[in-house]
Simulated scan of single mutants.
Amino acid sequence: MKKSKTYYLPFQLLPLFLMIQLSVPQQALSQKDSGNQVIKITGTRLTFPIFQRWSEEYTKLHPQIKILVKSGIPSASADILIVSHHLGSTDVKEGQAAIAITRYLQLPIINSQRDNVSTLQSDGFTEDELKKVYFQGNSDDYILPPEYHFVVYKREKPACASIALANHFGQQQVDIKGVGIEGDDQDLLEAVKKDVKAISYNNLGFIYDIQTRKVVDGIAIIPIDFNENGKIDEDEKIYSTLDLVLQYAEKTNNPKLFLENVNVIVQKNSRKEVIDFLQWVLKYGQRYNHAYGFLNLDKKQIASEKEFLSNIHSANSGNSSKSISTNYHVSND
C-alpha cells in the first residue's frame, strides 16, 4: 500500500499565507460596499429631506444598497442629479436623460410683524402685482404704492427655486430685484424673519412646520388673488395648513401658483440599481411626499415616466432594439 505524502508549508511563507486568507473577506466586503452598491445623489438642496426619506425606506428593503444624498458631490460623478426648475435643451447633456420625480410649490412670504399684514392678507396680491414687486420694485419707470413698499430678498447665487420663480413670470433669476442672500433657502427664510419690511418666496417644506403643519413663526403668507377681484374670497383661503395648500394645488393645478417639477438627470447607460431606485420612487415613494411639503405627480405622468425608465433599462440590457433618442422626457408646461 502506497503511503500518501504530507506537504508542509515552509515556515517562512506562513505569515504571507495568513495575510492572504484574512484579506479575502475584507476585500469582498469592501467591494460590496462600493461601486455598484452605492448610489450618489446631489443637486437642489431643498429636495434633500424627501430624497433622504425615500433613501431610508428603499434601503430598508434593499440593505445591500447604500444611497448618499448630499451637496458637494461633483455633478459629473453623481448617479442622480436633482434639478428643480424648467429644463432647457442645454440642461440635459448628450448621453443623459431626465424625468420628473415629484413637484413643489413656492409662495410669496413676508415678515409676520409687518404693520399691515392683515390688510395684505385680506386683499391679497394678483399675479401681476407680485411680478412688479419682485422684478420692478421702486424703479424710475414704475413707483410702487406705499402699501407695496418692501425689501425684496433673493438668493445671491443661481439656485433652482429662484430660477423656477423667475421662469414662472417669464423672467430670468438675474432680473429679480432685491438683496442677495448667501446660503440656501433656509437662509433666505431667516432673512425675512429678521426684517419687518421683507418680502421673498420659499417652498412649502420650509414655510410650514412639517410636524404641526402650520406656518412657521415669524413668517406670513401673502395670498394670491386668483380671480383678481381685489380681495381673498373664501375659496382662495387655502393657506391655514400645509395639507390644505397641497390638496388645493393637486386638485386644481392652478396656473397662477408657482408650481414646478423636481427633475432628476441620469445617464442613459445608468446602472440597474439607479433605475430600480427611481422606479420605486415613482411607484411607492410618492406616499411620503406630502409629509415633507411636496406634491405627487398625477397617475398619467407617473406611468409615462416609469415607461421611459423601463426603456432606458431595456436599452442598457440589450433586451430592446428601441434607442432612447430624446434627452429629457419631463413636461415643462
Rank of each mutant, 00 (worst) to 15 (best):
A303I: 10
F258M: 09
D209M: 10
Y328M: 09
T212E: 14
F226Q: 05
R287P: 01
A315W: 05
K272P: 06
N227P: 05
G230Y: 00
L242M: 14
V245E: 00
N263S: 13
H290C: 08
L309Y: 07
V262F: 04
L282F: 10
V274H: 00
I275Q: 08
P223I: 02
K272N: 14
K251Y: 09
G285F: 06
Q211N: 15
Y288V: 04
I302W: 05
I222G: 01
N319K: 14
N296E: 11
P255R: 11
I275E: 07
S240F: 07
T241N: 13
S314P: 01
K322L: 14
G218Y: 09
V266H: 04
V274M: 04
R271I: 06
G205T: 07
V264K: 02
E273W: 10
A220G: 11
R271C: 07
N229W: 08
Q279N: 13
D243A: 05
V266K: 04
D225R: 02
V215T: 13
L246E: 02
G218F: 13
K214A: 12
D217F: 06
Y288I: 05
V274A: 03
V281A: 12
K256G: 00
Q247S: 13
N319T: 15
N319I: 07
I219S: 02
A291H: 11
I222Q: 02
S321I: 11
Y328C: 07
Y288Q: 07
G318S: 09
D233K: 00
S331W: 09
D298M: 08
V274P: 01
S310M: 12
A198K: 09
G205R: 12
E307D: 13
V330W: 03
G318D: 10
N289C: 13
E236A: 07
G293H: 02
N203Q: 12
F277E: 04
T241R: 10
K283M: 09
N202H: 09
T326C: 07
S240L: 07
T241M: 09
N254L: 07
F258D: 00
